[in-house]
C-alpha cells in the first residue's frame, strides 16, 4: 500500500475518481433529459419525430463508445472547432459529457420506451377520452407509470455510464483509468494492489447503487 501513502499519488487517485463522478453526474442528467425527449418522439404520432428518435437510437446504440468519444474530440473539437471551455481539461471534460450523453441517451430512450410499453394502452386511451392532449397524456398518465418500470433499467444504465466514463481518458482527461495506468507505470512492483484499489473503489460505489435502484423499483412498483 506504499503507493497510496504518497500524498501525490493519493491526490491523483482522488482527482481521477472525482472526474469520473463529475462525468457520470453531468452525463446522467443530460442523457436522462435527452433520452426522455427521444422516447416521447418515438411514441409520438408525428412520423418525422418517430424517425428521428429511431435513427438516434440505431446510430448511437450500435456505435462503439470509443468511436463516439473520438468523434467528439477529433471531429467536433479538432476539425469543427467546437470549444466548450477555455481550460484544456474542462474542454475535454465537456466533450466527454457530450459523447457520453448522446450515447447513453439512446439506452435511456429504449428503457423509457419499454417502460411505456408496460403501461396498458387503456391508460392512454382513458386519458385521451377525457380530453387530455398527447403531451398531457404522456406527462400526467403514461410517464409516471412508466417511470416505475424504468427505475431498475436506469440503475443498470447509470452503472454502465459510470464505468464508460473511463473512456474519456483516451482523449486526454486524467480520470481514474489513466491515473491507474500512470501509477502502474511508475510502480511496477505493486500492479495487483493498485488494480485492486481502483477496482474496489468502483465496486464500493456501484454495488450500493445497484441495490438502491433495486430497492426503489420494488417500493414504487404500480399495483394493478
Amino acid at each position: 500500500m506504499h503507493v497510496f501513502t504518497d500524498p501525490k499519488n493519493f491526490d491523483a487517485y482522488l482527482s481521477g475518481f472525482l472526474w469520473i463522478l463529475k462525468l457520470t453526474g453531468a452525463s446522467a442528467v443530460c442523457a436522462l433529459v435527452l433520452g426522455v425527449l427521444l422516447a416521447a418522439m418515438r411514441v409520438s404520432p408525428v412520423p418525422v419525430l418517430r424517425g428521428f428518435g429511431a435513427a438516434w437510437v440505431n446510430i448511437f446504440r450500435n456505435t462503439p463508445l470509443t468511436l463516439v468519444i473520438f468523434f467528439c474530440y477529433f471531429g467536433l473539437f479538432v476539425t469543427l472547432g467546437l470549444t466548450l471551455s477555455d481550460d484544456l481539461f474542462r474542454n475535454i471534460y465537456w466533450l466527454g459529457v457530450v459523447g457520453l450523453s448522446t450515447y447513453t441517451a439512446a439506452f435511456v430512450c429504449e428503457a423509457v420506451r419499454s417502460g411505456i410499453n408496460t403501461v396498458p394502452t387503456g391508460q392512454a386511451e382513458a386519458a385521451r377520452a377525457i380530453g387530455l392532449s398527447f403531451a398531457q397524456t404522456l406527462r400526467i398518465v403514461v410517464l409516471p407509470q412508466a417511470a416505475r418500470a424504468v427505475i431498475a433499467p436506469f440503475g443498470s444504465i447509470l452503472i454502465a455510464l459510470c464505468k464508460n466514463a473511463t473512456i474519456v481518458g483516451t482523449i486526454g482527461l486524467a480520470e481514474s483509468s489513466t491515473i491507474m495506468k500512470d501509477l502502474i507505470n511508475f510502480n511496477g512492483d505493486a500492479v495487483i494492489p493498485i488494480f485492486l484499489v481502483f477496482a474496489g473503489t468502483f465496486a464500493a460505489v456501484l454495488i450500493p447503487t445497484g441495490y438502491f435502484f433495486g430497492w426503489l423499483a420494488n417500493r414504487l412498483a404500480v399495483k394493478r
Binding site: 387503456g122 377520452a129 377525457i130
Partner: peptide, 23 residues
C-alpha cells in the same frame, strides 16, 4: 388537436376494463 380534445371532453367514455389511472 385542441378541437378534438375539446370534443372528447364532452363525450364521456366508460371502458370494459375500467382503465382507471393506476397511479
Amino acid at each position: 388537436g385542441k378541437a378534438l380534445a375539446k370534443l372528447r371532453s364532452e363525450v364521456g367514455m366508460v371502458f370494459q376494463s375500467f382503465n382507471l389511472f393506476a397511479h
